[in-house]
């Protein structure tokens, strides 16, 4: 934790298909105070991810899921959730079936 800023380091995971849009990595960490700030930091750090994760109306694409620990962020009432060290933000492809 960066005590001076209140930022904590969390783990981020993106699908391998989007590796090239995230600095050629699928697992990395970022620092932020809250969940919504973490999402903004993620998209500002890797602007190509915004295009691939969000549609023309800035809505999460239909087949993209974003999980904060074990919760789909679309289930959360608020995104200004304070982060704790070791939290995870995971981007998943919602393409099920055979």
């Amino acid at each position: 934790m960066d005590a001076s800023s209140g930022n904590v380091s969390i783990k981020v995971c993106v699908p391998s298909l989007l590796r090239d849009c995230a600095g050629n990595q699928t697992h990395f960490s970022l620092e932020a105070c809250t969940l919504d700030e973490a999402i903004q930091v993620l998209l500002e750090t890797y602007p190509l991810l915004r295009f691939h994760l969000y549609d023309e109306a800035d809505r999460l694409r239909q087949h993209v899921l974003m999980y904060y620990n074990d919760q789909n962020i679309s289930w959360l009432e608020r995104l200004d959730v304070p982060l704790r060290p070791g939290d995870e933000l995971r981007v998943l492809q919602n393409v099920s079936g055979g």
């Binding site: 699908p15 298909l17 691939h52 549609d55 694409r61």
Partner: peptide, 10 residues
């Protein structure tokens, strides 16, 4: 393109 990733040029 990909269902979960949109379309782009590489």
């Amino acid at each position: 393109h990909h269902k979960s990733g949109g379309a782009t040029i590489q």
